[in-house]
């Protein structure tokens, strides 16, 4: 059984005219994948990630993540589901500006009720492992854009979620920082078996994915495993 399964999923926005953001999507993602949703702006990438991330609900079709059928779950339970099973990285401004790097990493474990010494220990271990322990007490506004995105990825993977969703995580980065971020994501995917689904319209970033889900006008037009 696949980790994530979408069956006939459609989403239409009614903004003056009806916009079919996603139409009849069928998709399965396995544990440990490193997959990218790609396509031009407006093709439905964000909508797809929001639906899988239980931030939004489809008009029709079914989405299952692990054991949970999202479409039939009340909104109140979805917050808890996200807390326990998902990690998120957004395009920018991911970090809470009043918290240090360490405290940002502590945030989700704290919500999950992990005691302070445990969560600090885990966060420090992770920062050590990726060579970023120097940034421990820095505030987000003291970090470069690249550093901020890397911390956001660390925050997403620290609680060991079933899936990390990253919506255009490199869109605001130069190619060098984009490559660094991808290096880190690849390494975490490889070493810790974190499942990643990210979106991008940058060809250089696409080339790093092990699976490309190509969207156009809300439909999957291509789903391939590129040759290495």
């Amino acid at each position: 059984m696949a980790q994530i399964e979408l069956t006939n999923v459609s989403k239409t926005y009614h903004d003056h005219v009806a916009v079919h953001a996603l139409a009849n999507i069928n998709l399965a993602i396995e544990k440990g994948e490193f997959a990218a949703a790609v396509g031009p702006s407006g093709s439905g990438k964000t909508t797809l990630l929001n639906l899988i991330g239980a931030l939004d609900t489809p008009d029709s079709g079914a989405i299952r993540i692990g054991e949970l059928e999202i479409t039939s779950t009340p909104a109140a339970k979805l917050a808890d589901f996200r807390l326990r099973h998902l990690g998120f990285v957004f395009q920018s401004f991911n970090l809470f500006p009043v918290l240090s790097v360490l405290e940002n990493l502590e945030f989700v474990p704290a919500l999950r009720g992990l005691p302070k010494p445990d969560r600090v220990h885990r966060a420090e271990q992770l920062l050590e492992a990726v060579g970023m322990i120097d940034l421990r007490d820095k505030r987000p506004d003291e970090l470069s854009g690249g550093q901020q995105q890397r911390v956001a990825v660390l925050r997403a993977i620290l609680p060991e979620p079933d899936l990390v969703l990253a919506d255009e995580p490199t869109a605001n980065l130069d190619s060098e920082n984009a490559a660094l971020l991808l290096d880190m994501m690849e390494r975490l995917n490889h070493e810790r078996a974190v499942t990643f689904l990210f979106s991008t319209h940058d060809p250089a970033v696409m080339s790093r994915a092990r699976r490309l889900i190509r969207l156009k006008d809300g439909r999957i037009v291509e789903d391939q495993v590129p040759k290495r």
């Binding site: 808890d80 996200r82 957004f90 401004f93 809470f96």
Partner: peptide, 9 residues
């Protein structure tokens, strides 16, 4: 962002 990460209302 807080709510996406699982913060409840």
């Amino acid at each position: 962002v807080m709510m996406a990460l699982g913060t409840k209302p």
